[in-house]
Design a protein around this nucleic acid. Structure first.
Length: 561
RNA sequence: AGGGGCGUGGUGCAACGGCAGCACACCAGCCUUUGGAGCUGUGGAUCUUGGUUCGAGUCCAGGCGCCCCUGCCA
């Protein structure tokens, strides 16, 4: 019943990173493998992170190495403890294992000593230029920068100034510590990059101890070295930073990990940047970080996605250096494949239409045997009550059937799943001319769904007994954006929100669903996979659409038009 | 324009000088007590030009296109 645990060794294709790591082991560059997960604790994990996480985790695991979960908390103005917990929780849910949890801030003291070493060696200096001057003197893509007038300060003065920066003697922004490299370097990251900035801010771990905080370039590689990370795997935009990563380590003459870059995950019909996701939440386009339409792990969990399905998707997407945008339909296919094997089937009618079976006894109730999961015989069967008045799906009835429509219409016979053949006799309409009630007759000899005379029907439809059904709220989700690439344009993504991304329906579910617990998953036959939401109550269960079933009829109908 | 990368069906990824393949999507059919699932099949790609080679997606040279880089963000 429970999904099989994810086996990294199974079917994980090789890629250029795995090959590079193997090569490093073979030629002795390293004799073990250790990677690191470097989330910044300033937001929730989204599916894009999963790709990076799995590369880090599996590369370590496949080579008998380990993974360090290191929070990159070098910027106290943006980071919060709340996210640390959430990130760990999501990562655990994915099945990722790490040997220890660390923080960049654990190394602030040692990192400061290393900075002093560089100052002493004449490789770093305190710059008093304003941020504007620093920026202006950096030059442009095509023009070299200009040396700072403070670049040639002597070592003693630099040491003194750095210490006083640390002690909080100077205001924010008044000075920075910079590496002394080359202001004319064609790679702008090498034009005397900043190492420390002054920030009189409270830090979620170190409190008020520090008045200066390291920048990413100065922190990350040094932390990698301190932790004995062999392979620092990151996304493409850090390729330009690799020369700097290596420069610091070379100057320091310390253990030197290897940085390798790969293309991050992008998904169509989705935005992935933290800033944009935050706007969706803050401007109430969604109900929160765990709104099931969001690409965050919290949201996907709530929606009913399994870790297995997400991991399978990541595996199938692969790893390369091409900028790429993956198709959400692949993700959906992975979810269907996983859920198809494991989900219990239930009947639910989400857009109800009343059907009265005129020749069925008024007070009779029969218990029909229904299969729980045709993909899994061990899932057994259950009883579903049947009676004279039932609900069927509005889509399953047409007064005038279009071509190729096999479902119920006047004069046509269909099978009620696990129950009887019924034939539509007539309809009842309201003043507006809408069909509000369908009348039918049943064939008592077809109990269970087969006719003794061998008569066939072309369609089987699902139903619930009106008398026994439980009312339920069903939240139907669709893509949050109506454009394949909502990211293009700054404001663009808010202009292409799909107005129909959430539709709340009130339907009826079979009685066995009345007590389903939050988080449990079912297939509603012929509709899709659904997950019980945390908003569910005993009085009114709430179901989230995880993903719909493939709908062949919808395709036929669409083509007809 | 300077630097760093990347160009293989619609999408994502393979092919490591030797028959361009896989998955999803698409299309057609079979089967079906889910128009689900499953099964079978079709179509469709090496950015371009030249070179090396018996043989080039792969190696070389030029061109073209796309992405990233001028935070005291990561």
């Amino acid at each position: 019943m429970s999904p099989e645990p994810f086996d990294p060794a199974q079917g994980t294709p090789t890629d250029f990173i795995r090959e590079a790591v193997k090569e490093d082991l073979k030629n002795g560059r390293f004799n073990y493998v250790r990677t690191r997960l470097p989330p910044e604790p300033n937001g929730y994990l989204h599916i894009g992170h999963v790709k990076a996480f799995m590369i880090d985790y599996l590369v370590a695991k496949e080579n008998g190495g380990d993974l360090v979960l290191r929070f990159d908390d070098t910027n106290p103005t943006k980071e919060e403890t709340e996210f640390v917990e959430a990130i760990e929780d999501d990562a655990r849910w994915l099945g990722i294992e790490w040997s220890k949890v660390t923080f960049a801030s654990d190394y602030f003291d040692l990192l400061y000593e290393w900075a002093q070493k560089l100052v002493l060696a004449g490789k770093a200096y305190v710059d008093d230029q304003t941020p504007e001057e620093v920026s202006k003197n950096r030059g442009t893509l095509t023009e070299p920068g200009k040396n700072s007038p403070f670049r040639d300060r002597d070592v003693e003065e630099n040491m003194d100034l750095l210490e006083r920066m640390k002690n909080g003697e100077f205001p924010n922004g008044s000075r920075i510590l910079r590496a002394k490299i080359d202001m004319a370097h064609p790679n702008i990251n090498m034009r005397d990059p900043a190492m420390y900035r002054i920030l009189h801010e409270h830090h979620h771990r170190t409190g008020d101890k520090w008045k200066i905080y390291p920048l990413y370039d100065w922190s990350h590689g040094q932390n990698d070295s301190m932790e004995g990370i062999t392979h620092s795997l990151c996304s493409l935009e850090y390729e330009d930073h690799r020369p700097l990563y290596e420069w610091f380590l070379d100057q320091l003459d310390v253990f030197k990990p290897r940085q390798i870059e790969f293309a991050r995950l992008n998904l169509n019909y989705t935005v992935m940047s933290k800033r944009k996701l935050r706007r969706l939440v803050e401007e109430n386009h969604v109900s929160g970080w765990d709104d099931p339409r969001m690409p965050t792990l919290r949201a996907m969990r709530r929606r009913g996605y399994t870790a297995n399905a997400i991991l399978d998707f990541i595996r199938r997407v692969g790893v390369a250096k091409n900028y790429s945008v993956s198709d959400v339909s692949l993700l959906e296919a992975c979810v269907r494949e996983d859920l198809n094997k494991t989900s219990l089937r239930r009947m639910a009618v989400i857009r109800p239409l009343k059907v009265v079976i005129d020749n069925y006894p008024d007070d009779l109730v029969e218990e029909m045997d229904a299969v729980n999961n045709p993909e899994d015989p061990n899932a057994g069967t259950r009883k579903v009550p049947f009676s004279k008045v039932i609900y069927i799906e509005q889509d399953d009835f047409r007064e005038t059937p279009p071509p190729k429509y096999y479902r119920l219409f006047p004069g046509n016979e269909v099978r009620l799943r696990y129950a009887y053949f019924i034939k539509c006799s007539h309809v009842v309409k309201n003043d507006a001319g809408e069909v509000i009630e369908v009348h039918a007759t049943y064939d008592p000899s077809t109990r269970g769904g087969d006719s003794p005379d061998g008569r066939k029907v072309k369609s089987t439809i699902h139903w619930v007994s009106a008398k026994h059904a439980k009312e339920a709220e069903v939240r139907m989700y669709d893509r949050l954006f109506s454009k394949e690439n909502p990211e293009e344009g700054e404001e663009g993504f808010l202009n292409c929100l799909n107005p129909n991304s959430l539709e709340v329906l009130n339907g009826f579910v079979e009685p066995s669903l009345a007590t389903a617990e939050a988080g449990s998953r079912f297939q509603f036959e012929r509709l899709g996979y659904f997950c019980v939401d945390k908003d569910s109550t005993k009085e009114k269960p709430v179901f989230n659409l995880t993903v719909n079933l493939k709908d062949a009829w919808a395709k036929i109908e669409k083509k007809g038009n």
